[in-house]
Amino acid sequence: MALDTAADTRAVLVLEDGTRYTGRAYGARGRTFGEAVFATGMTGYQETLTDPSYAGQIVVQTAPHIGNTGVNEEDPESARIWVSGYVVRDPSRVVSNYRATASLDDQLVTDGIVGISGIDTRAVTRRLRDAGVMRAGIFSGADASLPEADQLALIRDSATMTGQNLSGTVSTAVAYTIPAEGDRIGSVAVLDLGVKNSTLNYLSARGFDVNVVPQTITFEELLATQPSAVFFSNGPGDPGASDRHVELLQSVLREGLPFFGICFGNQLLGRALGYGTYKLPFGHRGINQPVVDVTSGRTEITSHNHGFAVDAPLGEPTESPAGFGLVEVSHVNLNDNVVEGLNALDIPAFSVQYHPEAAAGPHDSNYLFDRFRDMVLANQARTTDKDSK
């Protein structure tokens, strides 16, 4: 673990409203800005840090002890840490896991992530719950000594999450393919808006050749991959700032290709169907969110990471404002009645706001990948039957 010197141990977390929390430097030294959010997972900090959906955000861990198991080369959800900053209460001073290859502190330094430790993360969480998520900054080392007014001014000059399109920051620059495992049933074009490794592995395990494509792809280029289906991934930013991806998805739906979307992909399906999106006061981030499947009445404990949601009517199916037939809200958050899933009844398309690929868990919703596989097989059967007539 990186050792502190007396000269650079001080750090401060400053919220946009002027609230300040003084602690110790953790990870890289310097300054960083982002939207302060809290994550309630008791485990899986490495998966959280490497989730591209957290790009542009300073993550506050509500679990008090972080770093106990260090980091390893098996659990990351992407090639690097994506959070803008990291806030913990009590970082572990030792690493206690046989799989560990480094300490979390060392990894934060390697990836240039400015963090802070030794503050009351419960107090920060309560502030964000009461006032809503807001811009923030972490200042450590020499930057911790900047005048308070200057620190606050820097934060208030930084970008807000609303209106930001961050897909280009996290998406792959070049397409690549993960071959199907077992019996191949077809290929799926995955629009990388910040996709996680677990998602790709689960799709491959269902018999898909997984063609991961950049977020800049055109509809014609996407069709050239000859997909059996299309998938839009999770990702950071405001869905209201992704008009081009909405237009791409509408072309996919008109083509009749089966579609599955997760998280950001759910928000984009909502927009493609003609519904709006809006920003939640403090979002859903953690691995303990109760969601009900409206059709079955079954409650699932689910993993979340989103600050925006789809504004679609609960209850009976409604006509898609964009002309894609009937649409039902398939899943609802039991904490606040936020829309957690959409199911198009007249075209082969569905999506969920939460993460069925969840790592480190829970796995209550993993069956949705099977549902996607079944939908693709059913569409192939219909196409074959139609061509034979």
Results as ranks from 00 to 15, higher is better:
T9H: 11
L13C: 05
Y45G: 15
G56S: 01
Q61F: 15
P64L: 11
W82L: 06
S84P: 03
V87I: 08
V87A: 05
V87Q: 04
R89K: 15
D90I: 05
D90P: 02
D90V: 04
V95R: 05
A100H: 08
T101N: 13
D111C: 08
V114L: 05
V114S: 01
G115P: 11
D120W: 10
V124E: 05
R126W: 12
G132S: 03
V133L: 06
A136N: 04
L146R: 02
L146A: 06
E148P: 08
Q151S: 06
S158H: 13
G168E: 05
T169W: 07
Y176R: 13
Y176C: 01
A180Y: 10
K196S: 09
L200F: 08
L203M: 10
S204A: 13
G207W: 08
Q215N: 13
T218V: 01
F219D: 00
L223T: 02
Q226V: 12
G235Y: 03
P236A: 02
S251L: 14
G265N: 03
L273K: 00
G286W: 15
H304G: 04
A309C: 07
P313S: 04
P313Q: 07
P317W: 04
E319N: 08
P321G: 06
F324W: 03
L334Y: 06
L334R: 11
P348M: 05
A349V: 03
A359V: 15
R382W: 06
S388L: 15
